[in-house]
């Protein structure tokens, strides 16, 4: 019980921080009034139409990435797995960079192109990893993800090299991840879409406990391993694809949060998955607040913040793990 209070507290604090701070430099009192719709219309708009959806989207994306990371680590039985390992980020990046390079207009052009790229990569990796008689080989899955990702990255490099300077800048910033495109509409679409894979993954919690032991022991403890692996891979990939589409490629949340939760509260997925969601969401909401304010009025890519904060934390965790 105590851990859920701690996690809920962290989530509320991160959300409050994200709404309270920003390049506009509004006082906390002003923000609080604007939140309930009182005060200067511009301040109300900044708080209610920019900050609240942005912070909420960052929270949901962070939660989705952390939860996916936890699932994939158990699926491929590799503590280094993260949501992007499976070639998704390469595919999404290629889609987005192509859309930017071709100068496609509209708020949804880049996210849709990224989603198409991610889905293509998912299909390709899945096709490669299904070996004889419909068995999904998770070792091949890992390797396929790496090669598809590498191939897409090479194409991204080619597109970037041929892009004019202005588009090169937008493309690079997109690749590093951020929530500049956040809106109530994006939040609503993402929340509606993400809830389905999130529920599917959570419902698989006990099967994930078994699968972490290895496929053979899992089977003899009652897991239907083959359909389970397919369901997990597809749900996790589709969730990540949506996260990438709305926010670009944000590293480290999906890798380190599950490990932090394991160290704190152990490896039972019934706890691990929701706790990772809450902690990942809190981290990303706070990181986005930092990204917006550290060099205001310039915005850092939030992926840079999560990496700069995440790498040292992860290094410490790895040391603890090793001893």
């Amino acid at each position: 019980m105590k851990r859920w209070v701690v996690l809920a507290g962290a989530a509320l604090a991160a959300l409050a921080l994200g709404v309270a701070v920003g390049p506009a430099g509004l006082d906390t009192a002003v923000v609080a009034r604007a939140l309930v719709g009182r005060g200067d219309p511009i301040e109300v708009a900044i708080v209610r139409d920019l900050r609240v959806p942005r912070v909420s989207l960052a929270f949901l994306v962070g939660g989705a990435l952390a939860m996916t990371g936890a699932v994939l680590q158990a699926l491929v039985r590799n503590p280094l797995a993260d949501p992007y390992l499976l070639g998704l980020s390469g595919g999404a990046g290629l889609g987005a960079v192509l859309a930017i390079a071709l100068g496609l207009q509209g708020a949804w052009a880049v996210p849709l192109a990224a989603a198409v790229g991610a889905l293509t990569a998912i299909a390709l990796v899945y096709r490669l990893a299904v070996v004889a008689s419909g068995v999904l080989d998770t070792r091949v899955l890992l390797l396929s993800g790496v090669v598809v990702g590498a191939f897409a990255s090479a194409l991204v490099g080619a597109v970037l090299a041929l892009s004019p300077a202005e588009q090169l800048r937008s493309a690079l910033l997109w690749l590093l991840g951020g929530f500049d495109g956040a809106s109530w509409k994006a939040l609503a679409v993402f929340a509606a879409y993400a809830s389905i894979p999130v529920i599917i993954l959570y419902r698989a919690s006990r099967s994930l406990d078994l699968l972490s032991l290895g496929e053979e022991p899992a089977r003899f403890l009652g897991a239907d391993v083959e359909p389970l692996k397919r369901t997990l891979y597809i749900a996790a990939s589709l969730l990540t694809a949506a996260a990438v589409a709305v926010s670009g490629i944000i590293g480290f949340v999906g890798l380190i949060i599950p490990h932090a939760v394991r160290l704190l509260w152990g490896h039972t997925h019934r706890v691990l998955l929701p706790a990772s969601f809450l902690l990942g969401g809190s981290l990303l909401a706070a990181a986005d607040a930092l990204a917006r304010t550290a060099f205001a009025p310039l915005t850092l890519p939030v992926g840079v913040v999560t990496a700069v904060v995440g790498v040292p934390v992860f290094a410490v965790l790895v040391r603890r793990w090793a001893t």
């Binding site: 680590q73 158990a74 039985r77 590799n78 503590p79 419902r203 698989a204 919690s205 006990r206 099967s207 406990d209 078994l210 972490s212 032991l213 290895g214 053979e216 022991p217 403890l221 009652g222 394991r262 152990g266 490896h267 039972t268």
Partner: peptide, 23 residues
């Protein structure tokens, strides 16, 4: 069978109850 993630013995044995408890 080589565990990749840390589990307490009690939790590891509790996995034997999963076929009875269901999802």
């Amino acid at each position: 069978e080589e565990p990749v993630f840390p589990l307490r013995v009690r939790q590891a044995v509790m996995l034997g109850r999963y076929p009875h408890a269901g999802a």
